[in-house]
């Protein structure tokens, strides 16, 4: 299962990951639009546990062939139950977007992280 793993003790809180993420997904530099968020060296990001899949009553959330939890925006009704029920608080909401958004383990942020505090892992 592909996921973004973390070693919080290595995090310096520089915020590079947030910049890269929001640029990659939303073409702007706004940490509120980043799928990974760092607060006092605590890294908030999806670990692909998939609890949100069962929470979504309309099956708009699914696990893809790489094991990554994805949102089908076409059928998502923007209820944000998945945000309130995420045990990692890593399902995100922003007022500019209708649907929630989350880390899909693309690895862009890991490449940019100067201390390797985040990295792509295939371990379960």
């Amino acid at each position: 299962m592909k996921r973004l793993a973390k070693k919080e003790e290595l995090c310096t809180g520089c915020g590079e990951c947030e910049k890269v993420c929001s640029q990659a997904f939303f073409k702007e530099n706004d940490r509120e639009k980043s799928c990974i968020q760092v607060n006092e060296e605590k890294i908030k990001v999806c670990n692909q546990c998939g609890e949100c899949i069962a929470v979504c009553p309309i099956e708009a959330i699914y696990r893809d062939k790489n094991g990554v939890v994805r949102i089908n925006k076409k059928i998502c009704t923007s209820c944000f139950m998945c945000v309130g029920f995420c045990p990692e608080l890593a399902m995100m909401m922003h007022g500019d977007m209708l649907e929630p958004f989350k880390c899909i383990a693309c690895g862009q942020c890991a490449k940019a992280c100067p201390t390797q505090a985040i990295f792509i892992s295939e371990e379960v």
Binding site: F80, M93, L98
Partner: peptide, 23 residues
């Protein structure tokens, strides 16, 4: 169905209060 069908004046507030309740 989407979350803005009603064209509310303040969708962000709806989102925030809703998420607070879900949590």
């Amino acid at each position: 169905v989407k979350g803005n069908e009603n064209h509310p004046v303040d969708k962000l507030t709806l989102n925030k209060i809703g998420i607070k309740m879900h949590k």
